[in-house]
Simulated scan of single mutants.
Amino acid sequence: MANRARVATYYGVTAPAVALGAIVLATIIAPPETFTWQDRALSEMGRYGSSTFFLFNGGLIAGGLLGLPFVWHCWATSRNAVERLGVVLLAIAVGGLIGVGVFFLEHTAVYVERSLHGLAALSVFGVAPFASWVYGSGAALAGDGRLAVASVWFGNVHPLAWLGWLLSLGGRVDTGTWFAVPEFVAAVAFGGWIVTLAVTRRSRDDDESADPGR
Protein backbone atom coordinates (compact mmCIF):
# COMPACT_ATOMS: atom_id res chain seq x y z
CA MET A 1 0.00 0.00 0.00
CA ALA A 2 2.83 2.37 0.87
CA ASN A 3 4.51 1.69 -2.46
CA ARG A 4 1.25 2.32 -4.32
CA ALA A 5 0.81 5.65 -2.51
CA ARG A 6 4.40 6.59 -3.31
CA VAL A 7 3.89 5.87 -7.01
CA ALA A 8 0.66 7.87 -7.03
CA THR A 9 2.41 10.91 -5.56
CA TYR A 10 5.14 10.61 -8.19
CA TYR A 11 2.39 10.91 -10.78
CA GLY A 12 1.29 14.09 -9.01
CA VAL A 13 4.70 15.63 -9.66
CA THR A 14 5.18 14.21 -13.15
CA ALA A 15 1.81 15.17 -14.58
CA PRO A 16 2.20 18.98 -14.26
CA ALA A 17 5.82 18.73 -15.44
CA VAL A 18 4.75 16.96 -18.63
CA ALA A 19 1.84 19.30 -19.40
CA LEU A 20 3.69 22.54 -18.60
CA GLY A 21 6.85 21.29 -20.28
CA ALA A 22 4.94 20.63 -23.50
CA ILE A 23 3.37 24.10 -23.35
CA VAL A 24 6.69 25.85 -22.79
CA LEU A 25 8.45 23.86 -25.51
CA ALA A 26 5.61 24.58 -27.93
CA THR A 27 5.90 28.33 -27.27
CA ILE A 28 9.60 28.13 -28.09
CA ILE A 29 9.32 26.25 -31.38
CA ALA A 30 5.99 27.62 -32.65
CA PRO A 31 6.40 29.94 -35.66
CA PRO A 32 5.07 33.52 -35.26
CA GLU A 33 2.11 32.84 -37.52
CA THR A 34 1.02 30.12 -35.08
CA PHE A 35 1.76 31.73 -31.73
CA THR A 36 3.05 34.92 -30.14
CA TRP A 37 2.48 36.00 -26.55
CA GLN A 38 1.17 39.35 -27.76
CA ASP A 39 -1.73 38.21 -29.93
CA ARG A 40 -2.47 34.49 -29.60
CA ALA A 41 -4.04 32.15 -27.04
CA LEU A 42 -2.09 29.09 -25.93
CA SER A 43 -4.60 26.82 -27.67
CA GLU A 44 -3.55 28.23 -31.04
CA MET A 45 -0.52 25.96 -30.76
CA GLY A 46 -2.88 22.99 -30.72
CA ARG A 47 -4.97 24.13 -33.67
CA TYR A 48 -5.53 21.43 -36.27
CA GLY A 49 -2.78 21.60 -38.88
CA SER A 50 -0.30 23.63 -36.82
CA SER A 51 3.33 22.51 -36.55
CA THR A 52 2.99 22.17 -32.76
CA PHE A 53 -0.27 20.22 -32.98
CA PHE A 54 1.03 16.89 -31.66
CA LEU A 55 3.40 18.40 -29.08
CA PHE A 56 0.84 20.72 -27.50
CA ASN A 57 -2.19 18.44 -27.54
CA GLY A 58 -0.18 15.32 -26.77
CA GLY A 59 1.44 17.01 -23.78
CA LEU A 60 -1.91 18.07 -22.34
CA ILE A 61 -3.46 14.64 -22.83
CA ALA A 62 -0.43 12.84 -21.40
CA GLY A 63 -0.23 15.23 -18.44
CA GLY A 64 -3.92 14.76 -17.70
CA LEU A 65 -3.76 10.97 -17.93
CA LEU A 66 -0.70 10.89 -15.67
CA GLY A 67 -2.60 12.98 -13.15
CA LEU A 68 -5.53 10.58 -12.82
CA PRO A 69 -3.80 8.06 -10.49
CA PHE A 70 -2.87 10.95 -8.22
CA VAL A 71 -6.45 12.22 -8.22
CA TRP A 72 -7.61 8.77 -7.16
CA HIS A 73 -5.01 8.69 -4.37
CA CYS A 74 -6.24 12.08 -3.14
CA TRP A 75 -9.81 10.77 -3.09
CA ALA A 76 -8.84 7.58 -1.26
CA THR A 77 -6.92 9.47 1.43
CA SER A 78 -9.22 12.47 1.88
CA ARG A 79 -9.82 13.29 5.53
CA ASN A 80 -13.29 14.84 5.31
CA ALA A 81 -16.18 15.56 2.94
CA VAL A 82 -14.86 19.02 2.02
CA GLU A 83 -11.51 17.61 0.90
CA ARG A 84 -13.40 15.00 -1.15
CA LEU A 85 -15.41 17.75 -2.82
CA GLY A 86 -12.13 19.49 -3.65
CA VAL A 87 -10.87 16.27 -5.20
CA VAL A 88 -14.02 16.00 -7.32
CA LEU A 89 -13.35 19.51 -8.64
CA LEU A 90 -9.71 18.55 -9.21
CA ALA A 91 -10.87 15.56 -11.26
CA ILE A 92 -13.07 17.83 -13.38
CA ALA A 93 -10.17 20.22 -14.00
CA VAL A 94 -7.81 17.36 -14.93
CA GLY A 95 -10.51 15.95 -17.21
CA GLY A 96 -10.80 19.39 -18.79
CA LEU A 97 -7.05 19.41 -19.42
CA ILE A 98 -7.38 16.14 -21.32
CA GLY A 99 -10.41 17.59 -23.10
CA VAL A 100 -8.47 20.62 -24.33
CA GLY A 101 -6.04 18.26 -26.03
CA VAL A 102 -8.72 15.95 -27.40
CA PHE A 103 -11.07 18.73 -28.52
CA PHE A 104 -8.39 20.97 -30.00
CA LEU A 105 -9.20 24.08 -32.00
CA GLU A 106 -10.94 23.10 -35.25
CA HIS A 107 -11.46 19.51 -34.09
CA THR A 108 -14.80 19.73 -35.89
CA ALA A 109 -12.86 19.30 -39.14
CA VAL A 110 -11.84 15.83 -37.91
CA TYR A 111 -14.59 14.62 -35.57
CA VAL A 112 -17.61 15.81 -33.55
CA GLU A 113 -19.62 18.49 -35.31
CA ARG A 114 -20.09 20.63 -32.22
CA SER A 115 -17.02 22.45 -30.91
CA LEU A 116 -16.23 21.37 -27.34
CA HIS A 117 -12.93 23.19 -26.98
CA GLY A 118 -14.36 26.15 -25.08
CA LEU A 119 -16.17 23.90 -22.60
CA ALA A 120 -12.99 21.89 -22.00
CA ALA A 121 -10.93 25.04 -21.44
CA LEU A 122 -13.55 26.40 -19.04
CA SER A 123 -13.39 23.12 -17.11
CA VAL A 124 -9.72 23.82 -16.46
CA PHE A 125 -9.52 27.56 -15.94
CA GLY A 126 -12.93 27.94 -14.34
CA VAL A 127 -12.85 24.92 -12.01
CA ALA A 128 -9.16 24.73 -10.98
CA PRO A 129 -9.23 27.70 -8.56
CA PHE A 130 -12.36 26.35 -6.87
CA ALA A 131 -10.65 22.98 -6.49
CA SER A 132 -7.79 24.72 -4.67
CA TRP A 133 -10.09 26.78 -2.46
CA VAL A 134 -12.41 23.93 -1.52
CA TYR A 135 -9.61 21.45 -0.89
CA GLY A 136 -7.77 24.08 1.13
CA SER A 137 -10.89 24.57 3.25
CA GLY A 138 -11.00 20.82 3.86
CA ALA A 139 -7.33 20.82 4.80
CA ALA A 140 -8.03 23.63 7.29
CA LEU A 141 -10.83 21.58 8.84
CA ALA A 142 -8.38 18.68 9.14
CA GLY A 143 -5.93 20.91 11.00
CA ASP A 144 -3.45 21.03 8.10
CA GLY A 145 -2.77 24.77 8.17
CA ARG A 146 0.19 24.90 5.81
CA LEU A 147 -1.53 22.97 3.04
CA ALA A 148 -4.69 25.00 3.55
CA VAL A 149 -2.90 28.32 3.15
CA ALA A 150 -0.89 27.09 0.14
CA SER A 151 -4.01 25.73 -1.55
CA VAL A 152 -6.01 28.91 -1.04
CA TRP A 153 -3.23 31.13 -2.36
CA PHE A 154 -2.61 28.96 -5.39
CA GLY A 155 -6.32 29.35 -6.07
CA ASN A 156 -6.10 33.12 -5.60
CA VAL A 157 -3.49 33.38 -8.35
CA HIS A 158 -6.10 32.50 -10.99
CA PRO A 159 -8.51 35.44 -10.54
CA LEU A 160 -5.61 37.80 -9.86
CA ALA A 161 -4.01 36.83 -13.18
CA TRP A 162 -7.24 37.36 -15.10
CA LEU A 163 -8.02 40.60 -13.26
CA GLY A 164 -4.54 41.94 -14.00
CA TRP A 165 -5.01 41.07 -17.67
CA LEU A 166 -8.40 42.83 -17.82
CA LEU A 167 -7.01 45.91 -16.13
CA SER A 168 -4.10 46.01 -18.60
CA LEU A 169 -6.68 46.14 -21.39
CA GLY A 170 -8.67 48.90 -19.74
CA GLY A 171 -11.45 46.53 -18.75
CA ARG A 172 -12.32 45.38 -22.28
CA VAL A 173 -12.21 41.70 -23.18
CA ASP A 174 -9.98 40.96 -26.15
CA THR A 175 -8.84 37.35 -26.42
CA GLY A 176 -6.32 38.32 -29.07
CA THR A 177 -4.22 40.62 -26.87
CA TRP A 178 -1.80 39.02 -24.39
CA PHE A 179 -4.46 36.39 -23.63
CA ALA A 180 -1.82 33.66 -23.36
CA VAL A 181 -0.19 35.36 -20.36
CA PRO A 182 -3.02 34.89 -17.82
CA GLU A 183 -3.65 31.45 -19.32
CA PHE A 184 -0.06 30.45 -18.66
CA VAL A 185 0.00 31.98 -15.17
CA ALA A 186 -3.18 30.08 -14.30
CA ALA A 187 -1.73 26.86 -15.72
CA VAL A 188 1.44 27.28 -13.63
CA ALA A 189 -0.66 27.98 -10.52
CA PHE A 190 -2.71 24.83 -11.13
CA GLY A 191 0.39 22.74 -11.74
CA GLY A 192 2.17 24.27 -8.76
CA TRP A 193 -0.74 23.42 -6.48
CA ILE A 194 -0.79 19.80 -7.65
CA VAL A 195 2.96 19.47 -7.06
CA THR A 196 2.60 21.02 -3.60
CA LEU A 197 -0.26 18.65 -2.84
CA ALA A 198 1.79 15.67 -4.04
CA VAL A 199 4.88 16.61 -2.02
CA THR A 200 2.80 17.27 1.09
CA ARG A 201 0.97 13.96 0.76
CA ARG A 202 4.22 12.10 0.22
CA SER A 203 5.63 13.61 3.39
CA ARG A 204 2.47 12.75 5.29
CA ASP A 205 2.44 9.18 3.98
CA ASP A 206 6.08 8.75 4.99
CA ASP A 207 5.35 10.07 8.48
CA GLU A 208 2.40 7.70 8.87
CA SER A 209 4.52 4.75 7.67
CA ALA A 210 7.22 5.61 10.20
CA ASP A 211 4.63 5.95 12.98
CA PRO A 212 1.70 3.57 12.29
CA GLY A 213 0.03 4.37 15.57
CA ARG A 214 -0.16 8.07 14.83
Rank of each mutant, 00 (worst) to 15 (best):
H158W: 10
A8N: 05
I98P: 04
W75K: 01
G145N: 06
S123D: 10
S123H: 03
M1L: 12
V94K: 01
T77K: 09
L90E: 14
D174K: 12
H158S: 11
G192E: 13
I92M: 07
I194S: 09
I98H: 02
H73T: 00
W165M: 14
G155F: 01
S115W: 06
E44I: 01
Q38K: 12
R201A: 04
V152P: 06
I92W: 04
A180D: 14
A180W: 13
H158T: 04
Y111A: 14
F53R: 00
A76M: 09
T27K: 12
V88N: 04
T196N: 13
I194Q: 14
D206Y: 02
V185I: 14
L90P: 12
R47E: 10
R40C: 09
N3F: 15
G12F: 05
L25N: 01
G176T: 11
I92S: 03
E208Y: 08
I29A: 03
T77A: 03
V127N: 08
I28D: 07
H117Q: 08
A161K: 06
V102C: 07
W162Y: 13
I194T: 09
A187P: 01
F130A: 11
V149D: 04
V199A: 12
L197K: 07
A26W: 04
S50Y: 07
F179N: 09
N156H: 09
I29Y: 02
V124D: 07
E208F: 08
F54W: 15
D174P: 14
A22I: 05
P182D: 07
A2W: 13
N156A: 14
D144R: 11
F35L: 10
F54G: 05
N80P: 00
G164Y: 15
P182C: 11
L105K: 11
F184M: 14
F184N: 08
A128V: 06
T52P: 04
V82F: 05
R214L: 12
P182N: 05
H158I: 02
A19D: 04
E44W: 11
L147T: 06
T177W: 15
G143H: 01
A150R: 13
R79T: 01
A91L: 12
G49P: 05
V100P: 00
T108N: 12
A8L: 08
R4C: 02
S78G: 09
G95W: 00
P32A: 11
P159L: 03
M1G: 11
G96S: 08
P69N: 00
W72T: 03
A22Q: 09
A140T: 00
I28Y: 06
G59S: 10
A189C: 08
Y48A: 06
A81N: 03
A81Y: 01
L25K: 00
F70Q: 07
W37P: 11
S203N: 15
V127G: 06
D211V: 02
E44K: 01
I92R: 02
W72A: 02
A186R: 02
A180K: 04
P212R: 04
S123L: 15
E208A: 15
A91H: 05
L90C: 12
A19Y: 00
H107F: 08
Q38P: 11
W133Q: 02
A161C: 13
L116S: 08
A5K: 03
T9P: 14
T36C: 09
F56G: 10
A131M: 13
D207G: 10
L68S: 00
A131L: 06
L90R: 06
E113T: 11
V100Q: 10
G192I: 08
G99M: 13
V112E: 06
R47V: 05
E183V: 04
A139I: 01
S209D: 14
